[in-house]
């Protein structure tokens, strides 16, 4: 990743890379926009990555 990235048209910045940020990023990409997903931690995923099962079906969360 270089320090200077060319300016992109139609870009959106998403602050926070938890489940909400990731979902928004995926949708924006599919809708044809460039996404900057900004996350303060070293990896995206947020709290959901800490969960094993999810309510009410106890599905695997990853």
């Amino acid at each position: 990743m270089g320090k200077t990235i060319k300016q992109r048209e139609g870009a959106v910045m998403i602050v926070g890379g938890g489940i909400a940020g990731i979902q928004a990023a995926l949708d924006m990409t599919e809708l044809g926009y460039y996404v900057y997903l900004v996350e303060k931690a070293p990896a995206v995923g947020g709290v959901m990555a800490q969960l094993d099962k999810t309510f009410p079906t106890n599905d695997c969360s990853i």
């Binding site: 320090k3 300016q7 992109r8 048209e9 139609g10 870009a11 959106v12 910045m13 998403i14 602050v15 926070g16 938890g18 909400a20 940020g21 928004a24 924006m28 900057y36 947020g46 709290v47």
Partner: peptide, 14 residues
């Protein structure tokens, strides 16, 4: 780093 963007989505969680 500076980013040029058209819109911002805030999803910082809780």
């Amino acid at each position: 780093r500076e980013l040029t963007i058209g819109a911002v989505i805030l999803s910082p969680g809780f």
